[in-house]
Amino acid sequence: MAAAAAAGAGPEMVRGQVFDVGPRYTNLSYIGEGAYGMVCSAYDNVNKVRVAIKKISPFEHQTYCQRTLREIKILLRFRHENIIGINDIIRAPTIEQMKDVYIVQDLMETDLYKLLKTQHLSNDHICYFLYQILRGLKYIHSANVLHRDLKPSNLLLNTTCDLKICDFGLARVADPDHDHTGFLTEYVATRWYRAPEIMLNSKGYTKSIDIWSVGCILAEMLSNRPIFPGKHYLDQLNHILGILGSPSQEDLNCIINLKARNYLLSLPHKNKVPWNRLFPNADSKALDLLDKMLTFNPHKRIEVEQALAHPYLEQYYDPSDEPIAEAPFKFDMELDDLPKEKLKELIFEETARFQPGYRS
């Protein structure tokens, strides 16, 4: 834990890192770190609560700039109880001085990944967590956004079992017609939660990839272990087919990539493993919904509104309290091709509203 900075004593240090967030945020305490930044909790002297502050230093890398800009653009436009918001952003007053960006968010005690390492969940908890994931996802999908990296560590939890989806750095506007060349190379989302079509096709992607990830998360809540822990690309596919069985001819016809289709045709026939054999203690309604989410063919996979209306979630289902976005989200430009200098300018502009004396 960093010592509390005395008023006016300059930035606090946390594990050798400068955290320049005073005077409003003090009493910093280390939480963890990701690929390009550290997260601390801090005391907000204005709202009198502890908050989470993520320090991001992305400006050396085009990919990190892209992810940072995506996350900020999306989260500043989203407003939903099951999606983490941005409360404040701290950065230098000029673009030349801006080396880091500090993002202030609600402090959540833990995440689903940490929880599943230590606790076996009751059916009631599984049901409530799944409902909140789908409630947040309904809003995301209504904005025409794909999260693309749903996994237990991106689901934040607090002691009252509130759940918030975080990390929109890989999110995209849904565009089933656009052929994202190089899709697989830039697709760094965790393999275990990846839909089979991501490994088999490169053309376009749809909201059904997020539903697949939610199915993987439900299976993990039922058993405290990942359902498809593939060691590499082909191993991942083999794990999936080992449980779902061989795809039907109709399902194979959806695979545009001939090499991928021929690979699947070359494999020995596998039978589907019954879900109640894998999860003998699970609620039968939970397994019915799991089956509809972990469907090989993305066109037959359940959609988020149908999933919310499934009998497993009937005690929570309330369409009048499951809000959607006001308007579909649009990125003005494809960020993939922009140089990091341009992305830095866009991050600077996007964060201006939090600067003292800002006038829109």
Rank of each mutant, 00 (worst) to 15 (best):
C40A: 07
L107A: 08
V304M: 10
V101N: 07
Y113I: 07
P226Y: 03
D332N: 13
D149I: 00
D210A: 12
D167H: 06
V21I: 07
P93N: 02
P356Y: 05
R77D: 03
T94I: 12
A5T: 13
W275T: 06
P339T: 13
A171T: 13
Y233I: 09
R50E: 11
T63D: 14
P311N: 03
F59Q: 13
N87C: 07
P274M: 09
K330I: 04
L308D: 02
W275D: 01
A219P: 12
L265A: 04
Y263T: 05
M98W: 14
I211S: 13
L335M: 12
P226S: 12
Q249A: 11
D149V: 14
L155G: 01
A307W: 00
I256C: 07
H310L: 14
S142R: 01
R277M: 07
S57I: 13
L156R: 07
E109S: 06
Y102N: 14
K48Q: 13
T351H: 05
K342D: 04
I95A: 05
H120M: 11
D337F: 06
K99S: 05
T110N: 12
R194G: 08
D318M: 02
F296Y: 14
S248F: 08
D124I: 04
R67Y: 13
P229S: 12
I103L: 06
I302N: 15
A92K: 02
F168I: 14
I56G: 15
F331V: 12
L69A: 08
L163E: 02
F348H: 08
V101C: 11
M221A: 09
I103Y: 06
L244G: 06
E345V: 14
F329T: 01
V49A: 00
C216Y: 13
F354P: 01
G242A: 10
L134M: 15
K292R: 09
I56T: 12
L308P: 00
A52Q: 01
M199W: 07
M221H: 04
K207N: 09
D175I: 09
L264C: 04
A35Q: 13
F331R: 02
I86W: 14
E326H: 01
L278D: 05
S360R: 10
D251C: 08
D210P: 03
D321N: 11
P323C: 02
P319N: 04
E220H: 04
G230N: 00
L130V: 10
D100M: 15
K99F: 03
H178S: 11
P176W: 05
A260N: 02
V173F: 10
D111A: 14
H299K: 10
L137I: 02
A286W: 01
A5R: 13
A5F: 00
Y316K: 02
Y233C: 06
I227G: 01
I74E: 10
A3D: 13
A309P: 08
K117W: 10
G8P: 08
I165Y: 04
D337M: 03
Y316L: 06
H299D: 09
H120W: 03
G32W: 00
L155R: 00
D106K: 09
I227L: 11
A143Y: 11
G204F: 09
A42G: 11
C166G: 13
G242K: 12
E314L: 05
C216V: 11
T190L: 07
Y263S: 01
T181G: 06
C65G: 01
D106F: 05
M333P: 09
D106Y: 14
D321T: 00
N224G: 10
S57E: 11
Y64I: 15
I255W: 10
L184A: 08
S208L: 06
K272M: 08
M333Q: 10
A5V: 13
K48M: 15
L75W: 15
K48V: 10
I209T: 00
T94S: 15
G34L: 04
L290F: 03
C161R: 01
E314N: 02
Y36R: 15
L130E: 01
E197L: 07
K207P: 09
Y193N: 15
L289H: 03
R70F: 02
R70V: 02
H178Y: 12
L294K: 01
E349C: 02
H310C: 04
L313T: 08
I240T: 00
K259L: 06
D336Q: 10
K203H: 09
P356D: 06
Q249I: 07
I133T: 00
K259I: 11
Q66R: 13
V21Q: 06
D106P: 01
E349G: 07
G8V: 15
S29L: 10
L184S: 12
G22V: 15
D106I: 00
S213P: 04
S122V: 01
D210F: 07
